[in-house]
Amino acid sequence: MIRPGRMIKQVLQSLFKKPATSLYPFVKTAMPDKFRGRLKYYPERCIGCMLCMKDCPSDAIVIKKIGDKKYQAEINLARCIYCAQCVDSCPKDALEATKEFELAKFSRENLKVVCNEETCRSSETKT
């Protein structure tokens, strides 16, 4: 039947329903398993092939040799577009996309993360 106010029934039902909105900063939702969030670097697995650097669409990752078979990654979280292509490109699984997504910082500088054997381990214990 064509009439105005066709939605009135559902609208009134909503009055007794819980709001569909989730109150985000207070109530956190779980990210899906395949979520591509902040990168995690395992320096001990890295062989320095630099495929991740080559494939990165936004030059967000730089791998540097800091010693004999020791490498460090400089990840610029501001440049990263979170496509996780580096994770796919890495032949040794030295990179991993975590579920972390709340990455806002007060300064651009703070978004540059250096990961090597020391810093990565210490940051792991922190989080």
Binding site: L15, K17, P19
Partner: peptide, 9 residues
Amino acid sequence: CAKLQNRVG
């Protein structure tokens, strides 16, 4: 209005 639209308001 928010309640009717299933929002928080």
